[in-house]
Amino acid sequence: MKNKRNVFYSLLITMAGAIYFPVQAQQKSDAQNVVQTKDVIPSQGPNSIVRTIKQDRKGNIWIASWEGVFKYDGKSFTNITSKVSPARFFSVLEDRKGNFWFASIGSGVYYYDGKSFQNFTTRDGLANDRVTNIYEDKAGNIWFGTEGGASRYDGKSFRNFKMKEGAAITQTDSIHTSVYQYQLPEVHWMHNDINSIIEDKTGKLWFGTRGYASVYDGKTFTTITNKDGKPFANVRSIIKDKKGNIWLGGDDGLWRYDGSTFTNFTQKFVGYIYEDKKGNIWTSSETSNGQSRALSSGSVNTKTWALSRYDEKSLSGKKPTVTEITNKPMIFGILEDDKGNIWFGTFDGVYRYNGNTITSFNGKNF
């Protein structure tokens, strides 16, 4: 299964042994790099892979898919990028100013102010044109996770963070010391591919990569390990919950860090983590259950991935209550909208779960 996952998820980084350098980016006033276009309004949402789903401050749902970036206003879908780029899109972010950023595979990043687009690529200073993740930190910097490292954009220039691939890892190297001060393996092939970026309550940045996950304190990167000294490898998703806890999901399953201790909730591969308004934790993860699960819309055959909910009230116990909502060959981004519905992306489009039934927006019956 790991080989198959890598085929579908080629997108992430690792920051041990990092070097960084600033490069100047083109300003947004550069008219040659601004594209204005008319929106295309299809009759339905995307019917291919959907990687990220977000809701903006106006209530619109934004969907990053392999067919482009779609906006859903509650009535119709608009393909925002159809006339701008044929690239596959993996992430979308609304920044604190209300502008949007779209991450693409092969075409860099698109900045959208609601009327026109500006494209940022390696020519402007971006670390790599294959971008899979976008995050805004407390200071308003925009971070991009690429296949060639992390890029931080301050509105004027990019600062790129890369690492030394294949570097030896020793106990005396502060960059490679685990958070529990265990000695790490002598050699590990590190990656620049970045899956996820999050800022914790102390201001440190956490990076989930194809190699080891790391924490950056502004000066050095520290490889993250659990209490047994094992590094977290191939971390696909990292979030900070309302209490300030950090959640990690990847090859090693689902883990929570409360500032001093790591707690494991499942050892099954976890591809995405999301916290809803009630504090429940939602995940997309592998499942070996071959039975079918009944929903009010009918029975659904269990396949590779499960959309699961961890009940907030039970997370302090040793055996949390986990509800498996549905199964699909693949499940990616998860979102709770302002009405309490849960949206999730799959290999064939986007779906919405209202607590009882699941609705498809790809023109097909669920």
Rank of each mutant, 00 (worst) to 15 (best):
S85Y: 02
K4M: 07
G229F: 07
V69D: 09
M190A: 12
I342G: 05
L11N: 12
S308L: 05
A16D: 12
N160S: 06
I273Q: 05
A103I: 02
W101M: 03
N234E: 15
D200N: 13
T261C: 00
S82Y: 06
A167V: 13
G317C: 00
V69M: 04
S178G: 15
I169G: 09
F232M: 13
S157T: 09
Q171A: 15
Q55Y: 03
H188Y: 15
L205Y: 08
T220A: 08
N356L: 04
N6T: 14
V350L: 03
N356A: 12
I134T: 07
W206I: 08
D217T: 01
S296M: 09
S65D: 04
L335W: 13
F332C: 06
N362Y: 09
Y112N: 00
F8G: 08
I239A: 02
K75L: 06
G290D: 02
T302R: 12
S76N: 08
R5D: 15
D228T: 10
W343A: 10
K277A: 06
D173T: 09
T323H: 06
S178P: 05
F21I: 13
Y216T: 08
S308H: 03
E165M: 13
G298L: 04
V235M: 05
F120I: 03
G355Y: 01
E136F: 11
N99E: 08
F117A: 00
V84I: 14
K54E: 14
F207R: 10
T81D: 01
S85D: 01
L12N: 15
N79C: 07
E199I: 02
E94R: 03
G145A: 06
D251H: 10
Y351G: 00
V7K: 15
L315I: 13
G363W: 01
S174Q: 03
V7I: 15
H191K: 14
T266W: 00
P185F: 12
T326D: 01
E324K: 01
A294V: 09
L12W: 15
